[in-house]
Each structure stands twice: as structure tokens, then as C-alpha cells.
């Protein structure tokens, strides 16, 4: 058994803790504490003796991303959900930085945490959404969704488990391929045409958004 399954526990147990804590009461708090403790143990198993600042930051930042994503998905207030999403994006940006793709970390912050989230918040403020009725979620559909998600997760991790550590960063790979220069050269070299097409897509989306939301003025 490789260190994948403990990692799964490390990610999922805090979510269980968060969930029980939210349900309130003393039992919830207790369960949350136990979850957090077990998760910390699992983290210890995973990290083992690879104790470097970068590695530890990866696990902490990724846990932040997972937990805020959980809040986004489970929360009833869209405004809080949007704000939690900032945590998710920032956590992922941190992970990118840990992975030495600093450029992408920056792009992540500017585009997602900046532009896209602002758009979300605009809309949330604009449409004045009511709080979602708690009874309307869950039900058979929710249980089926959670079961499917957990089953898929188990299967994916099972598929990943045998890979073990084998796919560690390529031996002797220099930092060069991840630099801004490398990405830029690739974008404006071999990927020039797709890049231009992507910009065209953005233009179309821009026009589409304006046409769709601006229709009221005509009528």
C-alpha cells in the first residue's frame, strides 16, 4: 500500500469534521476534533520524512482549497459561496507556486480570484438571490450524487495507487520548461493558431453576453 489512501483520508476527514461541526451540538464538535486529529496523523504518514517547507505548504494549501470548495458546494448563501470560492482559487494558486509554476499561480489569482469572481459577485448582488431552502437540496438526488462522487473518487484513487511514486518530477528536468518564457514561446510558436482561436472564442462570448443580457433595452 502506497501513501495514497492516507492522503485521501487526510483530505476527506476534515470535510466530515466540517460537516458535523456545522450540524452543531457537542457531538458535532467532538466528531470534528477527532476528524482533525486523524487527518493530522494521516498527513504524518503521507509526508514521512520528506520534511521540506515546500512539501508541507503543498499539503496545507491543497487542504485549504478542498475545504473552501466544500463550503462553496454545501453552503446555502450564494454570497458566502462566492467568497469561499476565493479561498479555493487562492489555494490552488498557492499549489501552482509550490509546483514552481509561478506564472500560473499569478494568472490564477488575477483571472479567477480577480476577474471571474468579481463577475460572480456582481451577478449575486444584481439578482438578489433568496437563500436556498435547505429542504430542497439533499433528498434521493443528493444521496445518489454523493454516492456517485465517492465511488468515482475511490475508483480514481485506486487507479492512481499502483503508480505510487513512480511519476515523480522527471529526472534532470530543468526549471526552464515552466518559466514564463517557455510558456510564452509555446503559446506564440506551435500553439499560435489555437491561441488566436481562443481569443476569437472570447470575443464571441463577449458579444454573446452583451446580446443576451442587453435584450431588455430593446423591448
Amino acid at each position: 500500500m502506497t501513501s495514497v489512501w492516507p492522503l485521501l483520508l487526510y483530505y476527506l476527514l476534515p470535510l466530515v469534521g466540517l460537516w458535523t461541526y456545522r450540524r452543531g451540538g457537542r457531538t458535532g464538535t467532538l466528531a470534528a476534533g477527532i476528524s482533525w486529529f486523524l487527518a493530522a496523523v494521516a498527513l504524518g504518514v503521507v509526508i514521512g520524512d520528506a520534511r521540506s517547507f515546500a512539501v508541507i505548504s503543498f499539503y496545507l494549501l491543497s487542504l485549504v482549497a478542498v475545504m473552501t470548495a466544500f463550503l462553496v458546494v454545501t453552503g446555502t448563501n450564494p454570497v458566502y459561496g462566492a467568497l469561499s470560492l476565493i479561498g479555493t482559487f487562492t489555494g490552488i494558486a498557492g499549489v501552482f507556486v509550490v509546483l514552481q509554476c509561478e506564472f500560473f499561480g499569478i494568472v490564477q489569482v488575477i483571472l479567477y480570484a480577480g476577474a471571474i469572481l468579481v463577475l460572480y459577485l456582481f451577478v449575486v448582488m444584481m439578482v438578489d438571490l433568496p437563500k436556498e431552502n435547505a429542504q430542497k437540496r439533499g433528498g434521493v438526488r443528493g444521496i445518489a450524487a454523493i454516492a456517485t462522487g465517492l465511488g468515482l473518487l475511490a475508483l480514481v484513487v485506486k487507479a492512481l495507487a499502483p503508480l505510487g511514486m513512480r511519476l515523480q518530477p522527471a529526472a534532470g528536468a530543468s526549471a526552464e520548461p515552466y518559466s514564463v518564457r517557455a510558456v510564452g514561446t509555446a503559446l506564440f510558436g506551435p500553439y499560435l493558431v489555437p491561441f488566436e482561436v481562443a481569443s476569437l472564442l472570447l470575443l464571441v462570448a463577449l458579444v454573446g453576453a452583451i446580446v443576451l443580457s442587453g435584450r431588455e433595452r430593446e423591448s
Partner: peptide, 20 residues
């Protein structure tokens, strides 16, 4: 360094939270 599998597990957990 962080093993690739761990990055992938992180991605999978995130993805399935989104899916659910």
C-alpha cells in the same frame, strides 16, 4: 518534492467535490 500522484489525488478530490 511533491509526488505526482499526490497532485493527482488532490485534483481528483477537488473535481469530485465540484461534481457532487
Amino acid at each position: 518534492m511533491v509526488p505526482l500522484t499526490h497532485v493527482l489525488v488532490f485534483g481528483a478530490v477537488l473535481f469530485l467535490i465540484g461534481l457532487v
